[in-house]
């Protein structure tokens, strides 16, 4: 009896996974390509940032944080834009792939925005003389972080995954629409409450040629890193979903055996 069940289950397993195997393997090739390219570029980027880019004449070596901070911050905005679009498409089509994209992008986005805040703080301490200032971009970034942490919390605390997908899509849409309003409200607010700490170095200098080139390279590197991480996370979610599908097929079989 137990043995028949075992073979039945194995059968269910193999049948379930035949079709979805193909696309997964292809996307894995893509990810291998991405990780190799990304790794090489990251090494190159690091060497560019630390050896090629000239030391800033006024800010000194700390200015190099800039090559990390700006691309990471921009990528996190990109990530949340992807969440916004994927959420809308998911709610309209109900295709799980879009939900995977939204989730992967949101998770990577939260990591990036956290890094952007940390590098921002590292930048602010020596340059502005304070760890934190309620500067519009910094403040908006902090609000972004809060919104998308809430996004992940809604997903985690929902009664079931379908509900989590729908609720977080709603938060992904509402949150993103809110961002420009947050940004403008903070800018206007700043214009009334001038910053108490405007150090002599607060204004960024115009970028010199090599610096701009390194920055551009850094942008591309982090873009590839972002795409790789999202692809990797999506593949992981897809594997989870497929495993869930197999489990669910097994449960059906197990019930029918009686």
């Amino acid at each position: 009896m137990a043995e028949t069940r075992q073979t039945e289950l194995a059968h269910a397993d193999s049948r379930e996974s035949v079709t979805p195997l193909g696309p997964v393997r292809r996307s894995r090739d893509l990810r291998v390509y991405l990780v190799v390219l990304g790794g090489v570029m990251m090494l190159a980027d690091l060497s560019f940032i630390f050896w090629v880019a000239p030391t800033d004449s006024i800010l000194g070596d700390i200015q190099r944080v800039f090559y990390f901070h700006v691309p990471i911050a921009v990528m996190s905005f990109l990530a949340f834009f992807v969440v916004f679009v994927a959420s809308i498409v998911y709610l309209v089509t109900r295709s799980p792939a879009w939900d995977r994209l939204a989730q992967a992008s949101a998770e990577v986005g939260v990591v990036f925005v956290t890094l952007a805040l940390i590098t921002g703080v590292i930048w602010a301490r020596p340059i502005w003389g304070v760890w934190w200032t309620w500067e519009p971009r910094l403040t908006t970034t902090l609000i972004l972080w809060l919104i998308y942490v809430a996004y992940l919390m809604v997903r985690a605390y929902a009664a079931n995954p379908n509900q989590g997908a729908r609720y977080s899509a709603v938060v992904g849409i509402v949150g993103f629409v809110d961002v420009p309003i947050v940004y403008y409200s903070v800018i206007w607010w700043r214009s009334i409450h001038p910053s108490p700490v405007v150090g002599p170095l607060a204004q960024a200098n115009a970028l010199e040629g090599t610096m701009a080139a390194v920055l551009l390279f850094s942008f591309i590197t982090f873009l590839i890193l972002f795409v790789f991480l999202v692809a990797q996370r999506m593949a992981l979610r897809e594997t989870e979903d497929r495993l869930g599908g197999i489990k669910s097929a097994m449960r059906r079989r197990a019930e029918s055996v009686f």
Binding site: P161, G244, G245, S248, R251
Partner: peptide, 10 residues
């Protein structure tokens, strides 16, 4: 109908 990976009706 299933809730996540928990099949209820099929």
């Amino acid at each position: 109908k299933s809730f996540g990976h928990w099949p209820v009706l099929w």
